[in-house]
Design a protein around this nucleic acid. Structure first.
Lengths: 229, 229
DNA sequence: ACCGGTCTGTTCGGTTCCTAACATAACGAT
DNA sequence: ATCGTTATGTTAGGAACCGAACAGACCGGT
């Protein structure tokens, strides 16, 4: 029963016709993803795909070996391992668990078979692939044009939407990797938001206090990717 | 015969088994894309797809109504209209002809039918979709971390690869939209490259003089997306 | 030869973010 | 209670780029 719930909490799986998803079930394992887990490294083979239910996974590009930048955020609306749905088994990005929680896991081989056998699954995943491309595109422009404070606000809101809670754990150091800036920049932006009573935080615990206020502080990208998803 | 050549000049079409591509042929029209043509506007319906042979098409996101930023560059290695291969008929980006030249055009309806009927076409396009996602991802990081001069060098090299010529027409104003910076920034970067005898240009005519030199001036992203494509 | 439009070069003050340190504060373990 | 570790705050100088405006150069048309 608990497993059943987990499956349905992922919107991709939940949207499948009953028959399709019953065929899928035997290959799915309920797992818990822990904060900091690295699901894929760039250039490495994809061994499993994941359908997050209450967990959140960041997709990061690694530049010049050191700098990281988040390009996508996957929660219960998506799947981690999209390249497999495109016939490629190498991940171009690092997949990092950013919010611990439940997910359904499936082996790459099992997924390939299930994917080929199920037209509804193909349709869902291809539509999601498109949404993810749009998200990556939007993020690219956002990172280019918007200031850190607005990007931070957007990122906190997107995370909240995916974890389903106004409070979550993450350090400024971690955030700096997501936003592709120095930690100092995050400190400045976060202090500013806290000073305006939009958020509060201490030692890795962040809580959103003023939702509409934070949305106003975020760049328009937040609304755009939200209404498109 | 001329049409035959055009078809084969697009690597996606050329890689199809003879049978698949013969089924495709009746729906394909040889067209010439002109510099500045807008094939799609963001949010609008995709009416046709394009397989460039000697033309080059930029994919741009539009932010806040005014700023533009290139996220992808499509030449003979790809197709313009990838959303259709994912079951979506709305383009999230503007598609702008950046290098005039020949392409094969196909109506959205014709493409959908052909796509559903041809497994090899599906495979090729899905693989290309993955490559395009990787390119967008790389571009996102590049725009975030690398300085204008290196990005300009990369962009010139990528364009050269796709038009197949060391000389092409484009103004600094145009380049500034591609790179997402002010024109002044392009002037600075271009002057610097010219001063080092890597390129020469005048009134929209750019010529690459020193290939290895320009590659050295470009950021590593150039090599990365090249070897992956 | 002249004019208008396009393309390129330059300037200058201001903002954002970087680089690189160092300082403080909270927490956990012994 | 103390100490090491982790998280956050602060500072200062500099680089990259912005915003806005203007100046010169080149071209085509008449």
């Amino acid at each position: 029963m608990r497993q059943q719930w987990s499956v349905e909490a992922n919107r991709l799986l939940a949207s499948l016709p009953r028959k399709s998803y019953r065929e899928l079930l035997p290959g799915l394992d309920a797992v818990t993803l822990d904060f900091g887990d690295v699901l894929y490294e760039p250039g490495a083979r994809i061994r499993d795909v994941y359908f997050p239910s209450r967990s959140v996974v960041s997709l990061l590009t690694i530049v010049d070996g050191h700098s990281a930048l988040e390009v996508g955020l996957v929660g219960c609306e998506g799947m981690v391992g999209i390249p497999l749905a495109l016939g490629v088994d190498i991940s171009p990005v690092r997949a990092l668990v950013q919010g611990a929680g439940a997910a359904m896991q499936m082996s790459a081989g099992g997924f390939r078979k299930a994917f080929e056998a199920s037209a509804p699954l193909q349709r869902s995943l291809h539509r999601y692939t498109h949404a993810l491309m749009a998200q990556i595109t939007q993020t690219a422009a956002c990172n280019r044009f918007h200031v850190v404070e607005a990007r931070l606000a957007r990122w906190l809101l997107m995370t909240r939407d995916r974890v389903g809670s106004a409070q979550f754990r993450l350090t400024q150091e971690f955030l700096s990797h997501m936003l592709g800036v120095r930690r100092v920049g995050v400190t400045h932006a976060a202090s500013a938001l806290q000073r305006r009573d939009l958020i509060e935080y201490q030692r890795g615990n962040i809580r959103i206090l003023d939702n509409p206020g934070l949305e106003a502080a975020a760049c328009s990208c937040y609304r755009l990717v939200r209404q498109r998803a």
